Structures are given as C-alpha cells and as structure tokens.
Amino acid sequence: MDDLDDALSEGLDPAAGAERPVVAAPEDAGERLDRVLARHLADLSRTRIKRLITEGQVALDGRVVGDAAQRVNAGDAFVVSVPAPEPAAPVPEDLPLAIAFEDAHLVVIDKPAGLVVHPAPGHAGGTLVNALLYHCGDTLSGIGGVKRPGIVHRIDKDTSGLLVVAKSDAAHKGLAAQFADHGRTGPLERAYLAFVWGVPETRGSVDAPIDRHPTHRQKMTVRQSGRHAITHWELVETYPGTDGAPLASLVRCRLETGRTHQIRVHMAHIGHPLLGDEVYGQGFRTKAARLPQAARDTLARLGRQALHAERLGFAHPVTGKPLSFDSALPEDLAALRDALSAT
C-alpha cells in the first residue's frame, strides 16, 4: 500500500553518498595518508580508503590527492567523498506468479503474503522483481531503476493482494501519475480488508500525518511533522469473544494517500490495531486470550498482520479503459474469518 516515495530505508552504509572531513592531528604528522584516514574514519577499511584515493575521491585544500603513500602534515584538512554504492542488478528467478491481468503495457499481480516486492538488504533474491524479470524479460519499464524496474507502488511483505507493475515506460508514467493523484480526480481505487481489534464505528476516516518514528527507525507513527495521510474505513462484520461481547471486526479500508504502513498506523492510532500485527498491535496481545479457542489457534498460526489488498482499480495508462480487479481473501485469512465467525 506504499507509493515509492514512501519506501522504507534501504539500509545502506550511512557513510555512503557523503563528504567526510578529516583534519590531521599532531600525532598524524609524517604518516601515510591512507593510514591517517583509516584511523580517523574507523567505519571504512584501509583497502576501501586506498581505493577512494586512487579513484580521486580525496582532496586536500580543494586539490585531488591520488597517492595513498603521501605523507601528512599536522593540520592538513582533507575531504573524503564516499560515493553511494551502485545497486546490484537483480537476477531473474523462476518464481510462481498469480497474474490477474497482463498485456503489452502492464501486469496485475495477486501477491501472496511473505513475498518482498523489490530487493533490499536481507532480501537480495526471491522478490517480486526477481520473478518479474524472469517472466517479462527485458520488457519491464526501466523508470523504477535497476532495483525497482516497473514498480509503481508496493504493498508490505506480509500483506497479500493486488498490485500493478508497468511493462512499458509509457505505462509507468501514466500509472505513476494516477497514484500521485491518489484517485482524487481520476478512477484510481485501492481497497483493503483488515481484521482489527475492537469495533469501530460503522464508517469513518482517519486524517493524521504519518512520519518515521523518532527512535524506532523501521517503524512509522502519527506525528505533526509527518506527511498528509487519509484512510477511510467501513465496518463489514464483527466477531464475539468467549463472553459473547464484540471483540474484533473486519473493516474495509480505502486509501486517499499511500504512506508507508498507512492502514496499520492509522487503525492503531484510533485504538483498533490489526490482528497479528507485531509492530503496531503489541499492546493488544492479551485480547487473543478472549477469543474462542479455534480463532485463537488460527491467529497464532497466521504469522502476519491480517491485511489484504482486496481491490485495485485504475484507468489503463495507454488505452484509457477503466480496469478493476478483485482478490478473494487468501487461505490463511479466510480460515481466520471462518474461525472468528464460528459460534
């Protein structure tokens, strides 16, 4: 459910793409340049520093220094430029794909839970991009870059459901424009089914800015410094606990914006975090003890947030034809729904 500008940190070296100043101390006088820089820049190996020197990435008083053995004077002020690493090109992999629609310009995928959309640290292979490269060959749009060819939007690794991928640059530009507009003036529609704790009102909206958490950098939160985010929901059905009182619900959420973890953050913000969400629903673990045994066991086996991208609608970016796709609950969430509904 995340647009590309909301992608989580790639986990790259924090030194990458930065200029690192180094001023030689008195004890550095007379030593080799590479040894001095290695002492001051402990996060970079001496081999890496020697390569940066030979590549012309080290300057003294604005002049490039190309000799790693150059002797250093106390007070010399160096600037070391550390280029951002070039992303490795993903390798095509023959992975199964559930294709809801495909033509020469785009492909709509029904993504299973557990499948990462694009390569990132810890997920160099086995991603949707790897599968698409095998399936589509060289036809994927290159606008997304080497690590994200054709990717216009994404959904979380542990969220299942529909997303569209561009196979041509024209399709990529047209789809990107629709997602940037968030359906305000066009036909873009994104709907998700979410199992949440408690029972919200019949329908409502959350209008609350989302930003990265100030201390937990892989987590998002509602903050006034964040980006504009709106989620609309409607109640579909409710489920009782062992005492017969309503304990959980199924809601349909529609996105007006596309921020990282938006539905998960917004529903937790109003006191209705998603079932199975270990990041935003930790305070509600004790509620599971009030579920009927079958529902409790099914939830324990789920292993992910109970969220599914149910509907995706948009105008074909080349022909203009309205397209709409629906995805039934996958087996694990259908089993959860059955267990919650059982009396």
Rank of each mutant, 00 (worst) to 15 (best):
T238F: 05
D6R: 09
G226M: 13
M267D: 04
Q218G: 11
D76W: 10
F78G: 00
G313A: 15
R212M: 05
A24G: 13
S205W: 13
I53A: 01
A176N: 11
F325R: 07
R254E: 03
A177C: 01
R32F: 00
L250E: 00
G161S: 12
G241P: 11
E189A: 15
G271F: 03
P83K: 09
L12D: 10
L115H: 08
V146M: 08
V265F: 09
G75S: 08
A334E: 14
G144E: 10
D67E: 15
L312V: 04
D76L: 05
V64P: 06
G126H: 08
G303K: 04
R148S: 06
P92H: 01
K287V: 05
L8K: 12
L41Q: 02
R296W: 01
V82D: 00
A7V: 15
Q262K: 03
V236H: 12
G137I: 04
A268S: 14
E86N: 03
W197Q: 02
R301K: 13
A89N: 04
A309M: 09
L333W: 03
S327R: 03
S341Y: 14
V82P: 09
A166C: 01
E256D: 14
P246A: 13
A339D: 01
A98R: 14
P14Q: 06
L106M: 13
V64A: 02
G17S: 10
D43W: 14
I230G: 00
Q224I: 07
P85E: 04
R63S: 15
G271L: 10
P85S: 02
I49H: 00
